[in-house]
Write a protein that binds this DNA or RNA. Structure first.
Lengths: 150, 150
DNA sequence: CGCCATTCATTAGACGGCTAACGATTCGGA
DNA sequence: TCCGAATCGTTAGCCGTCTAATGAATGGCG
């Protein structure tokens, strides 16, 4: 009885959509909130650092940073000592979003898992962790998915 | 103890990546396989039908269809009786992918859930179903996520 | 019968991701 | 000291997904 793949995908899509809706009326897009979260914790990080932390490629962060700069959430400034580096600094607007965004995220998570008992929630997290680990292994192994299944 | 959102997102990303890798060496991109699956089951569907079945918007299907036509997987042809409609017809190449793709998908699913007991798998599916339902409700309700949480 | 609302597909453009190619800068070793 | 290797960010371009705007065809109602 397969169909786990589709279920997980469609769940993700639904969750994403509602999270995006939630963020949108705070004036930002989904994904930007992750960058912001890192800068709230420590301002002036570089795109590379952020990308590594978020498990995302550098170009992705660069693009987001460009939009966020346009939106007035942060500014770019090259590092004085190492001119290859660029550091992202929050604006006042970027800092101001911290409290509402964090609150919104928590509320969303509670809403979504409201139908689960505490035990169910723990099992869910455990199961997802296992699956993710498997997926990462497959990726690292040069995905022998088409080779002999054994 | 939040963090379910991030876990779910990162799991999805990993799963997606490995699935995409698997599809790529069969010569197609992730997402195309869903369109193909529908056409295998019934050839000659319209973009609108496919979009509705996949819970995706019509433009998404149109774009994929364009690429898939370029890739030689299917052809477009307008319906004779209702000229507004466009019907997508598999080419021989598109039909030929059925067996390998389905096999690959099943293998992938087994790999990913290999660390779960049967009970765990069932609980996982149950939990995801509940969460997805919640998410869809929130979307439908005009997402009162920012309104009074009560 | 003719016109307007409905129904489809397509196009345009945005977001989040990714890979590949470039360009600039720093650093280390000969 | 100087040049090539390593390190960064940026650009270009593709995939999947969405919304909004356009365009073409059908259908129903007066």
């Amino acid at each position: 009885m397969p169909e786990f793949l589709d279920l997980h995908g469609s769940t993700n899509k639904a969750v994403r959509a509602v999270a995006d809706a939630g963020m949108r009326h705070l004036g930002l897009h989904l994904g930007q909130n992750h960058v912001l979260a890192l800068l709230w914790e420590q301002d002036g990080r570089t795109p590379g650092e952020i990308a590594a932390t978020l498990h995302v490629t550098t170009p992705t962060v660069v693009k987001m940073a460009t939009r966020m700069a346009t939106a007035g959430l942060l500014t770019r400034r090259r590092d004085d000592r190492d001119n290859r580096l660029v550091r992202l600094w929050l604006t006042e607007a970027g800092r101001a979003l911290r409290q509402p965004v964090e609150q919104q995220r928590e509320r969303l998570e509670n809403h979504l898992t409201a139908d689960l008992t505490e035990a169910e929630r723990e099992q869910l997290i455990s199961a997802l962790t296992k699956i993710r680990r498997r997926a990462l292994e497959l990726l690292a192994d040069g995905d022998p998915t088409d080779a002999e299944p054994r």
